[in-house]
C-alpha cells in the first residue's frame, strides 16, 4: 500500500457556452476521474460551470516573472501594432 499524497490538479472551468475555460483553483485527487468529481464539488456548487478541465499541476510549464522584462521586451517597442498609432483625419468614418 502507498501512503503518498494525492497529486495536485489545476482546475479550469467554462462558466457558460461561448466563454473560454478559466483557471478556478487547484485541488488534490488520486486520478483524473476523481479530480473532475472533486472539481465539481469544490468549484461548482452553485452551477458555476458547464465544462471542467483538470490538468496535473506538475504538467504546467510557466514563464519566470523575474525574467518578464526580457521576455516581453520584443513587443514593447512596437507601438505601430496598435491602431491608435496611425493618424486619420477628422471626418473619416468606418475605420
Amino acid at each position: 500500500m502507498t501512503n503518498k499524497e494525492w497529486p495536485l490538479w489545476e482546475v479550469f472551468i467554462r462558466s457558460k457556452q461561448g466563454l473560454s475555460h478559466k483557471h478556478f483553483g487547484s485541488l488534490r485527487a488520486s486520478d483524473e476521474k476523481m479530480a473532475i468529481e472533486n472539481a465539481r464539488d469544490v468549484y461548482t456548487r452553485r452551477s458555476e460551470g458547464i465544462s471542467i478541465w483538470v490538468v496535473e499541476s506538475s504538467n504546467i510549464v510557466a514563464s519566470d516573472p523575474s525574467k518578464a522584462d526580457s521576455l516581453y521586451d520584443p513587443s514593447n517597442s512596437k507601438v505601430y501594432r496598435h491602431p491608435t498609432f496611425y493618424d486619420v483625419p477628422d471626418g473619416i468614418e468606418h475605420m
Binding site: M1, T2, N3, K4, W6, S30, D31, M34
Partner: peptide, 16 residues
C-alpha cells in the same frame, strides 16, 4: 480515512 486514501492511490496505479 487513511485506508480510503491508500485504496484510491492503489486504484490509480492499477488504472495507469
Amino acid at each position: 480515512g487513511a485506508w480510503v486514501r491508500e485504496a484510491a492511490n492503489a486504484h490509480a496505479e492499477k488504472r495507469k
